[in-house]
Write a protein that binds this DNA or RNA. Structure first.
Lengths: 189, 189
DNA sequence: CCATGATAGTCATCTTTCTGACTACTCACA
DNA sequence: TGTGAGTAGTCAGAAAGATGACTATCATGG
């Protein structure tokens, strides 16, 4: 039950509707959690029943009525308790890594294609995250922001997101290079 | 259904019993997949029923009888098909990141403790992975091994594991430094 | 002689996550 | 005039993953 905490943490940034939350999970939150909109709506319902978030209806003209949620005091207490509890080490689960693990037995060309595609995705995400970082720190320098800004949580996780994706991209490109060289070497024999 | 493919990929390294597989998932495979022993036994049973792996009993004296599994041709074909199918982008799911996202609202000291602990875990894993890399490449240099060695799959994924954990450790330490400086700054005001 | 830890594995069940298929309204564009 | 894209949300059920409680044997150390 950790999606609930990810939702709570995401809602700290201000009131959000389920729909907006889904958008958030596509960018900033994507650094450390991934979820479909349906899951988020379901989670919000549960959290509201338990009094950890509270929602209010906002009638809009020219758009459907939405419900904006915010974290309650009970929700904050829950987050606090969650933080105090020991976390199990992060784990990566990556289909692409499974494929590379089997690299010696499967088709190299397919693998190279997928690695290249992944490197491109990583590149795009780096740009996205860096734009988010610039937005979060405003006109301040990074050091200054981290020292004196408020709400540095999202900034810190985003920093990790950038580093992760850079590493991801570098590794993909390096792996492609290795596989390609081996392909050529073998072709010559 | 991706654990199945992780198991198949892990079994490419040679015949393994469920128990040995569980060990493998604690080290090399941990780079890209995590699973409990019970899940692995269950998965092996399913894979055997579907003819993707085959097992043989090995009676041992001084130890319980075990079953060693290897990937069948059908299993290889399955891996090939899996590789050809598009992979969904990797995602990280990390409790600790959720806590950092909420850093502005939760207890800083707890967070610092957990980040420090995580950095230490990362350090230990880096050592573990580097030892594995040395073992895999034997007395060859990395470049030479990657060019001419066989079974480079596990080596490549392990490289990523090292990079991931290094980045992990660096980020944890950097985050600790930031949080600590803020704590002191605030104490002064 | 007893406890502990490593080897080897099973069973049943519970949670959590993921997916597909829906409804409904508005706006812009062709 | 209707078609697609964006906003906003719901429901039911399938799939995947995690957990707790077990059984056995042998070796080692105290």
């Amino acid at each position: 039950m950790a999606l609930r905490h990810a939702v709570l943490a995401a809602l700290l940034d201000g009131e959000l509707s389920g729909y907006q939350l889904a958008k958030a999970f596509d960018v900033g939150v994507a650094n450390f959690w991934y979820a479909q909109p349906q899951q988020l709506y379901a989670e919000l319902t549960r959290l509201e029943q338990q009094g950890l978030v509270a929602g209010r209806e906002v009638v809009q003209e020219s758009r459907p009525t939405k419900r904006l949620f915010h974290v309650t005091d009970a929700g904050l207490a829950e987050l606090e308790a969650f933080t105090a509890a020991s976390a199990k080490p992060a784990f990566v689960r990556d289909d692409l890594m499974v494929k590379v693990q089997a690299a010696d037995s499967v088709d190299t060309a397919t693998l190279i294609d997928q690695l290249t595609e992944r490197a491109e995705i990583a590149r795009a995400r780096i740009e996205l995250f860096e734009a988010l970082l610039r937005r979060l720190r405003g006109d301040r320098g990074e050091e200054d922001f981290l020292r004196h800004g408020h709400r540095i949580g999202p900034y810190l996780t985003c920093l990790r997101g950038v580093a992760f994706e850079q590493e991801n991209r570098d590794w993909c490109l390096r792996t492609v290079a290795v596989l390609e060289e081996r392909r050529h070497t073998r072709a010559r024999n």
